[in-house]
Simulated assay, not measured.
Amino acid sequence: MIIACLHTADSNCAVFEAAARKLGLASDVLHHTVRPDLLEAAERAGGLTDEIARSTAAALGALAARADAVLLTCSTLGPSTAIVGQTPVPVLRIDAALAEGATAVGGKVVVLCAVETTVAPTTAVFSEAAKRRAVALEVRLVAGAWSSFKAGDRDGYLAAIAGACDVAYADGASIVALAQASMAGAADFVHRGPPPLTSPEAGLRAALERIAQRVSTVE
Rank of each mutant, 00 (worst) to 15 (best):
R66P: 05
A67Q: 03
A67K: 01
D68C: 04
V70E: 04
L77H: 06
P79C: 13
S80D: 09
S80P: 09
T81N: 02
A82H: 12
A82F: 13
I83T: 14
T87N: 03
V91Q: 11
R93C: 07
I94G: 00
L98Y: 05
E100V: 14
E100N: 12
G101H: 14
A102C: 12
A102Q: 09
V105K: 12
K108S: 12
V110N: 08
A114D: 02
A114I: 01
A114F: 07
V115Y: 11
V115F: 13
E116I: 14
E116K: 15
E116Q: 10
T117W: 03
T118L: 02
V119P: 01
V119S: 00
A120Q: 06
P121Y: 06
P121T: 07
P121V: 10
T122V: 10
S127Q: 02
E128M: 07
A129L: 03
K131T: 10
K131V: 03
A136L: 10
A136R: 15
L137K: 09
E138K: 13
R140A: 08
R140N: 06
V142N: 03
V142L: 02
A143N: 05
S147V: 12
K150T: 15
G152N: 15
D153I: 15
D153C: 14
Y157L: 06
L158A: 13
L158P: 03
A160R: 08
I161V: 15
I161C: 14
A168N: 06
G172E: 09
S174R: 10
L178N: 01
S182M: 12
M183N: 07
A184F: 08
A184C: 06
G193N: 07
P196Q: 01
L197C: 00
